[in-house]
């Protein structure tokens, strides 16, 4: 049975009818056209689908869309509303990504980390992004980019 939900998506109100068994990831991508969260595993194992729920990173592939009724969701599209963030600029300068498929999830997770802990050390960065799988880069350029931002502010 469809239910109407209301939530904030990247700062804008959204009203949409969903089935209780629809996943947040699918609703964002297929019904709301927000494509930055990616489908990598669908089981919470890879982090490619990460979005912020009230500022905290979650895996939208194991979240029911109906659960976010009344909540605030931020995706990569929302982070860069006022232009690229320092973190994004740093990723760019470090050529942090290769295929780029993990980039949106990685950026969400790293953004949460820097919001919570603006000056993490290398191990804290590794801990924070450990749930975001990247098959291409070996992580080094991603970590260097995050550390660079943490040193700047």
């Amino acid at each position: 049975m469809k239910k109407e939900i209301n939530f904030t998506l990247n700062g804008n109100p959204v009203k949409i009818e969903v089935m209780p068994n629809e996943k947040l990831l699918d609703v964002l991508r297929d019904r709301l056209g927000v494509k930055s969260p990616k489908h990598g595993c669908g089981r919470g194992e890879c982090g490619a689908c990460s979005v912020l729920l009230n500022g905290k990173s979650i895996r939208s592939c194991i979240t029911l869309a109906i659960e976010v009724d009344g909540q605030e969701i931020t995706t990569l599209e929302g982070l860069e509303k006022n232009g690229m963030t320092e973190l994004q600029k740093s990723f760019l300068q470090h050529n942090s990504f290769q295929c780029g498929f993990c980039a949106p999830g990685m950026t969400i997770t790293a953004t949460e980390l820097l919001n919570k802990n603006p000056h993490p050390d290398e191990e804290e960065v590794r801990e924070a992004i450990a749930g975001n799988l990247c098959r291409c880069t070996g992580y080094q350029n991603i970590i260097d980019a995050i550390l660079d931002v943490s040193k700047k502010e």
């Binding site: 982090g47 895996r59 450990a130």
Partner: peptide, 9 residues
């Protein structure tokens, strides 16, 4: 337990 994106939930 898991990693931060799981532990947030």
């Amino acid at each position: 337990v898991a990693s931060t994106g799981v532990r947030n939930r």
